[in-house]
């Protein structure tokens, strides 16, 4: 097992490097001049050159990437062009908010998705299955921002139960109220996708010969259920891991709708302001979280299915 984990970690390193390169390139390939926002429109060439040199933008791209990478590895993500504050502290602050929101949304999506999926898979083809599948499809197809706005209209505007936007004044139980609507909005899609995958997995596993063999041994329905769960778990974990990764990064629209001060909102601001260091840093951190989640999935899967250790 330790050898297997070390191997998986070693595989993750080149992936992380490639991710960093893509992050860097994407931002630099996008059109637009980042300096146009910082400098006055009538700035003279000397000022422009000086500012370029200050941010290292006068160097060739590979040199810029290398410089940025060495800095990033040592924990220095540069300074935000727009606010002048270090990118690290901007991201750290936003990440706290996003992680908390993502955590609650994940738990919600995971619990709802697994429950609905298992029930639908077990009662494959019945009315329960049809209802669960309809709920799942709604969750997958309703656009985030639309669902968010509808929830706000119902629960904030009409019923006045929950706040519509923001994150409250301080870290207290009061803040949970602000998280309810964004968390539900965010959880809708992963809940739907997890439901559909788990449903297919459970139905597929139940159709396997070994389940008949377990019945032929006289095991109880509960015992057979445990066998089904352990068989379906590795694939379910892979789907869930990917969904949670999307959840971290895919919260841009939701955080914008609810003005939740997380990485999504930060990313949105950085894009609109062409704040390259902030943009690069945020994308990289989100991408690395994705890589880390996948690594975690790789490590957890063989605990359920020993055949996976060989691959």
């Amino acid at each position: 097992m330790p050898v297997y984990i070390l191997k998986r970690v070693a595989y993750a390193v080149p992936v992380a490097l490639a991710v960093s390169m893509i992050c860097f390139l994407l931002v630099h390939l996008a059109p637009g001049d980042p300096l146009s926002l910082v400098l006055p429109a009538d700035a003279n060439q000397t000022t422009i050159d000086a500012t370029k040199a200050k941010y290292g933008l006068d160097q060739p791209l590979p040199a810029q990437y290398f410089l940025w990478l060495t800095n990033v590895v040592s924990g220095d993500f540069g300074t935000s062009i727009a606010t002048g504050r270090p990118v690290v502290s901007e991201i750290a602050n936003a990440l706290t908010y996003s992680l908390l929101l993502a955590l609650i949304a994940s738990v919600l999506g995971l619990v709802v998705g697994t429950l609905l999926g298992t029930v639908a898979g077990y009662w494959n083809g019945t009315a329960i299955d049809k209802i669960a599948s309809a709920v799942a499809i709604s969750g997958v197809s309703l656009p985030h921002y639309w669902l968010g706005i509808v929830l706000v209209v119902i629960f904030s505007v009409n019923l006045n139960w929950l706040p519509a936007m923001g994150a409250g004044e301080s870290w207290s139980a009061e803040r949970l109220k602000f998280m309810v609507l964004p968390a539900i909005t965010l959880a809708a899609m992963p809940a739907g996708i997890i439901t559909r995958s788990v449903r297919a997995l459970v139905a597929d596993t139940l159709g396997k010969e070994f389940v008949t063999a377990l019945e032929a041994r006289g095991l109880t329905q509960t015992q057979i259920f445990l066998h089904v769960v352990k068989n379906a778990a590795p694939t379910a974990i892979a789907v869930i891991g990917v969904q949670l990764g999307y959840l971290m990064a895919g919260s841009i629209l939701v955080e914008t709708v609810f003005s939740w001060p997380g990485t999504g909102l930060l990313l949105n601001t950085a894009i609109l302001q062409r704040d390259i260091p902030l943009l690069q840093g945020t994308i990289l951190v989100l991408a690395l979280i994705f890589v880390a989640l996948n690594l975690l999935v790789d490590i957890v899967q063989p605990m359920f299915d020993p055949r996976m250790k060989r691959g």
Binding site: K208, E209, F210, A213, A216, R217, H227, K230, D305, P306
Partner: peptide
């Protein structure tokens, strides 16, 4: 008790 035709399919692979 029953012995199945395909032992590779009749055993639960993850136990």
């Amino acid at each position: 008790a029953m012995i199945f035709q395909e032992p590779s399919l009749a055993f639960d692979p993850v136990f």
